[in-house]
Simulated assay, not measured.
Amino acid sequence: MGANWDDESIAREALKQFPVHGERLVYLGKSDNVTFQVKTKQESVNYLMKLHYAAMGSHSKKTVESELLWLEALAADTGLTVPSPVRNRDNGLTVEAAVNASGKSVVVTLHRWVNGELLDREPTAGEARSLAQLMTALHKHAMEWNAPAGFTRPAYDTDNVLSLPGPLKRLQELNVISDEAYACLERTAHKIAAELRLQTVTKPTWGLIHSDLHESNYVFDQGIPRPIDFSACGFGFYLFDVAETFLHLSPENRREFLSAYREERQLREIDAKSLDLFFVWAILRNFAFLAQNPAEHASLSELIPKVMKSYFENYLKDEPVLGGG
């Protein structure tokens, strides 16, 4: 489906408030936000514009601006290529554009376009290691960076875990999954929350994370991975970030990733039990996200029982899930 005419007109009006001369807008898609590529006369200079419809509640503008502040800091302090923000003509990070005559407005942001290709295959062993190096660079920066006063991003904590059974309950009500399957998911969430309370929150273990670094959210340019889409970034355990990426890697690549991550962070070992905890949480979070899309229900009805047997039942019995790391 193409762009809504109103979205395009909102984007065009918002673009006037940025110091950028866009030749044309290319509609990219709609998930939580509506996105456009802004093409300029210079072929190598393009931008990404986001209409943040998902952030229309209270504190939304501050939350979006906090994401952009981290991106600005990453661009300034590291050698990483990230979708850094373009400030508006008044040096602000965001623009508020009127949605309709009702007075409602949407937060609009503009980012520098990150060149590269999405992988349509499993990463090679070398690519898995370079992804680990990328994640380590993000984590090292987060450990050293002092976020400014008022910085607001979500926290991936016990409250977050305990919110996950909500959307999954709907799958039970629609008979997409059995009562037994839902009970297993609910028990898993409560066990994760209980074990999470025992995790130590220190500077080397907890901080700002991308939280969604998978093959749709990084591109490779000349063999170097570049992170994109920081819209889910927030505060969490660094191992949760690792576990989220693990969901999308083969067992062999998980080993490569973990080995490189340990080397880069100079960690003698990584607690396998903790990694299992975060991995199971990452699966549960993914299921809760997919459960909100009716188009995913058919595949979830097959996938959830399989994953329960492969991972959740072992986790609930205190048996290894991933194996040693």
Score class of each variant (00 low, 15 high):
M1L: 08
G2D: 08
N4T: 14
W5P: 05
E13C: 06
A14K: 09
A14I: 04
F18S: 07
F18R: 08
L25T: 04
Q37D: 13
Q37W: 01
V38T: 07
V38Q: 05
Q42R: 15
E43N: 07
M56E: 13
G57W: 09
H59D: 07
H59G: 15
V64Q: 00
W70L: 11
L71F: 11
A75E: 10
A76W: 02
D77L: 10
T78F: 02
P83Y: 02
V86R: 01
R87A: 15
N91A: 11
V107Y: 07
D120M: 05
G126W: 14
A128M: 09
R129Y: 02
T136A: 07
H141G: 00
A142S: 11
W145Q: 09
W145I: 05
L174V: 02
E180R: 14
Y182G: 04
E186K: 09
T188Q: 00
A189Y: 11
A194T: 13
L196K: 01
Q199L: 14
Q199F: 09
I209F: 01
Y218I: 04
F220V: 13
P227H: 00
G236P: 12
L239K: 01
D241K: 06
T245A: 10
T245W: 04
E252W: 03
R255F: 01
S259A: 15
E264T: 10
E264Y: 00
Q266M: 13
L267I: 14
R268F: 15
D271I: 04
K273C: 10
D276T: 03
F278V: 03
F279K: 11
F279S: 06
A288K: 11
F289W: 12
Q292N: 05
A295G: 09
A298Q: 06
E302R: 12
L303Y: 05
F312D: 07
N314E: 09
V321R: 11
L322F: 13
G325Y: 13
